[in-house]
Design a binder for these strands. Structure first.
Lengths: 232, 232
DNA sequence: CAAGCGATTTCGTTTACACTAATAATGGAA
DNA sequence: TTCCATTATTAGTGTAAACGAAATCGCTTG
């Protein structure tokens, strides 16, 4: 489906283009340039499709690319990606806050709406919510000007036994994973104590109120937490 | 997946297809089949484009078409069109009611969102508003099952001088026209009295509270009203 | 009843974006 | 340093949807 949209700052990009920019943004956030195959995996496309698109986008000045070397966003590309990310996160916040969506189920809906909303609608939703800084997954919402701070956080498996911590954000979009996490009583803001951990990448046991939960290593890595400092 | 985003009855149509169906629905509502050129004019496309699309859609069983004779919707096509219309009108209602849009400016936004929202979101918006029956322009909102009643109404130029009436709906999507209508103090629900009318398709004068307004014939025809009966 | 004109369709292209199959480049192991 | 596996790119196709130019239909009218 070809769906262009309106925006004052970002030129009129197609849904596909916006999805590529988001994907490249999220990959390059990890430090290294985005490879064709990583992008393909993330967007569930074939590598040749990505190769072709990446060439077009670099011609449009949205990204820096030389064959066989991976891609990075230009300033313009990054601004566009952050605009889409802002739309996505505002939409998620609004749907949870005002329309009764659960925080683990909003992603799909936002994924489609982010390409169709106007900047005006986004700003009205943001205003209605009091300009939130974090979305329901705990991810920071970029400002309208494309500024975003990523608060530092510690993945659960790196927190020492005995520590108290708060879940800050959940780094997954997988509905099943999110549903499971929600079902054990965890959501951004939840406070817990690390009770035990098995060695060799084994599971971590946490206490939530008066119940204890065991969280595997893989899942634990998605749980980005803020450790409550021990000393003053 | 057990519950996809799209309803069980409507298959997943592209934005263009949904726009064609809406256009054809609105033209054929007037009684006659929709001609290629009417559709082209309404959607701002060239007649050849419409010809091609219309052939594809009739192959898909969404409309009845024989060359040079115009098109009509099949039952399936009509159901799809009404689904989109419901989405559009619920979205307009929600934006006006909950996000501060003015009734004369929501159309564009709804026009893009109607192709991106899930049925779940529509039903949540409808629920939040208490399942409204009319949108901000006074148009009836089709029920989820595709039922819609079109209350009868009289265009302003057909109302006799001396009669009192209420504006029911405004049959235009043109932003300038709507802005003008809103600016003279008219919106769905407004009650007024017909004070005078010039002959030969001349303007009608109405009284709104204690001010009088003159409305041209062309514009008047967009104002669908409910005449307050004279006798018991 | 033939002619002409507007409405409609056919034809050939274009753009955007996806795919598969075939080819080429890169970097590490032998 | 050569060779191979991985990864990426090119080449060729397909589909959806638009366009303009040219051919054609069918109604009105002289």
């Amino acid at each position: 489906m070809l769906t262009p949209m309106t925006s004052l700052f970002t030129d009129d990009l197609t849904t596909s283009v916006e999805d590529y920019l988001k994907a490249i943004y999220s990959i390059t956030r990890q430090g290294h340039p985005a490879s064709t195959s990583e992008i393909a995996r993330l967007l569930d496309l074939s590598p040749p499709s990505v190769s072709g698109m990446v060439k077009r986008l670099s011609q449009q000045g949205l990204l820096e690319y030389q064959p066989y070397k991976g891609v990075e966003l230009t300033a313009r590309g990054r601004r566009a990606a952050l605009t889409v990310l802002r739309r996505h996160r505002i939409i998620e916040s609004y749907l949870v806050e005002r329309l009764g969506y659960s925080w683990d189920s909003v992603h799909q809906e936002a994924e489609r709406l982010e390409h169709a909303v106007s900047d005006m609608l986004i700003e009205r939703m943001a205003g209605a919510l009091g300009n939130p800084e974090f979305d329901p997954h705990g991810d920071p919402i970029p400002a309208p000007d494309g500024t975003m701070v990523q608060p530092s956080s510690t993945p659960l498996p790196d927190i020492d036994v005995g520590q108290e911590a708060a879940l800050r954000r959940v780094s997954s979009h997988d509905a099943e994973q999110l549903k499971f996490i929600a079902s054990v009583g965890l959501k951004p803001g939840t406070i817990f104590t690390v009770v035990a951990r098995q060695p060799f990448h084994g599971p971590t046991t946490i206490r939530l109120g008066d119940t204890e939960r065991v969280i595997g290593h893989e899942l634990g890595f998605l749980l980005q937490c803020e450790v409550h400092s021990e000393e003053q």
